[in-house]
Write a protein that binds this DNA or RNA. Structure first.
Length: 410
RNA sequence: GUGGGAUUAGCUCAGUUGGUUAGAGCACUGGUUUGUGGUGCCGGGGGUCGCGAGUUCGAAUCUCGUAUCCUACCCCA
């Protein structure tokens, strides 16, 4: 038997599909209300795009991208995230030169060549938004509001963690200070941290080793080293969130692995889905457009992992819907099929092709969760009527067939 | 990439030192004497026990390999 590849799932379960579309309906509706419009970019891009945006520093490029050489000998890569493609499209269309504000949302599959675990697949889905051309910190707050709106509508509880990563003025200096701090405790920290010192020093801050964490209590905090501009923006952001009653917690260990991020970084986490607890994350990336050959353009965005969210969604209760039609006499089957066909113009309607007794029809109607069970037996056949039972309130009536389509409205 | 656990019917799982035709519940399906469901009763179909080797007279059961799933780590865009 041929099976799907590791970490790649089908969506064929009806409930799963319903959850998926329920999420998308809500998320896209919110994004549109915020004035964002849909963008779709290719699943496959030049590997160089992701190498440039991600940098060569971590495991990402070598180990965790779905990269291969195609038949034309092009080095290509299935997109591991959405931002790089959107920025590429933005620059390619020369919107950076056109100026103005451009706001997009997207959703679709992403691919990462990783070992699967809870909340982590090789093919997974993200919903995200990107905003270009707005440097104001109000936009940062609006991003967070958008995520809050989506999660609220989905009935998902969360904790919001917030940090500022500084910018070119303050980040490099902080990085130097942090490295010299690490060197002062280097012989006591774990192997991973010793490696991180060289590859990505800021990552030591969220090391899971308790011993390391206690050593890092005295580590310099970026939040105390922000330059005036970053500090003002961060204060303003906190005030906007306070004014709008959005709870957050400053997490000075919240970092991003990549160089292009600056200033605002935020993450929404859930305590109910295992160690991969981030359900949405975002931040400002004022440098990325320039990294990808565009004119420097302020930008900010977020992305949410759809599979992780689906686990947490509280679905509205399902009520009975539509019609079930059945015949109790072979000779009525044709009539049933025709009536169903007409009924489907306006309502969901299903019918059985076999004559059965009433009890079995009721069972079948119940099984597909129909609201009405409609049956034609010998009596109804002779009288040109159809018997209809509302399965919710259990009321019954026999009506003329020609009235069947008008008189009953769900 | 590293570590731990798992893999038996569509689903959730039993299967007691290796021993005849591998079981249950749910689901599906048929009937229930000729018109009332979701909640009665009786029956039926469905499994080369993940895959491949090995040990053995004999393997779902033991050994090795391999794949996949779950889970944590690394990493996290």
């Amino acid at each position: 038997m041929i099976k799907s590849l590791r970490g790649m799932n089908d969506i064929l379960d009806e409930n799963e599909y319903k959850r998926f579309t329920y999420f998308l309906d809500i998320a896209t509706d919110v994004a549109k209300k915020y004035g964002f419009h849909y963008i779709e970019t290719p699943l496959l891009e030049e590997t160089a795009l992701f190498k440039r945006s991600v940098g060569e520093s971590s495991d990402i490029v070598g180990k965790e991208m779905y990269q291969f050489i195609d038949k034309g000998k092009n080095d290509v890569c299935l997109r591991p995230e959405g931002t790089a493609g959107v920025v590429r499209a933005f620059v390619q269309k020369k919107l950076d030169k056109a100026g103005g504000i451009h706001r997009f949302f997207y959703y679709g599959p992403m691919f990462r060549y990783e070992r699967p675990q809870k909340g982590r697949l090789r093919e997974f889905h993200q919903f995200g938004v990107e905003s270009f051309g707005v440097a104001s910190v109000y936009e940062d707050a609006v991003m967070i509001m958008m995520v809050v709106d989506i999660l609220k509508k989905l009935g998902i509880g969360y904790r919001l963690q917030l940090n500022s990563l500084g910018d070119n003025n303050c980040m490099p200096q902080y990085r130097e200070n942090l490295i010299s701090f690490i060197e002062s405790v280097e012989d006591k920290i774990c192997e991973d941290c010793q490696r991180r010192k060289n590859t990505n020093p800021i990552r030591i801050l969220d090391c899971k080793n308790e011993k390391c964490q206690s050593l890092y209590k005295n580590a310099p905090k970026l939040i105390n080293a922000l330059c005036k501009g970053c500090e003002n923006d961060f204060d303003k952001l906190k005030k906007i969130l306070d004014d709008n009653e959005i709870n957050y917690k400053i997490d000075t260990n919240l970092v991003r692995g990549l160089d292009y991020y600056s200033k605002t970084a935020f993450e929404f986490v859930s305590d109910n889905i295992g160690s991969q607890s981030a359900i949405a994350g975002g931040g400002r990336y004022d440098r990325l457009v320039e990294f990808l050959d565009g004119r420097p353009t302020p930008a900010i965005g977020f992305a949410m992992g759809i599979e992780r969210l689906l686990e947490l969604i509280k679905m509205p209760e399902e009520s009975r819907e539509g019609y079930y039609l059945g015949a109790m006499d072979e000779n009525a089957v044709d009539t049933i099929v025709s009536l169903t066909h007409i009924k489907r113009m306006t309502e969901k309607a299903m019918c059985d092709y076999k004559a059965k007794n009433l009890k079995n029809h009721l069972k079948s109607a119940d099984k597909i969760n129909a609201k009405y069970c409609c049956v034609i037996g010998t009596n109804e056949m002779n009288e040109g009527t159809i018997w209809v039972k509302n399965l919710e309130d259990k009321t019954e009536s026999t009506i003329k067939r020609e009235d069947f389509h008008q008189k009953l409205k769900i």
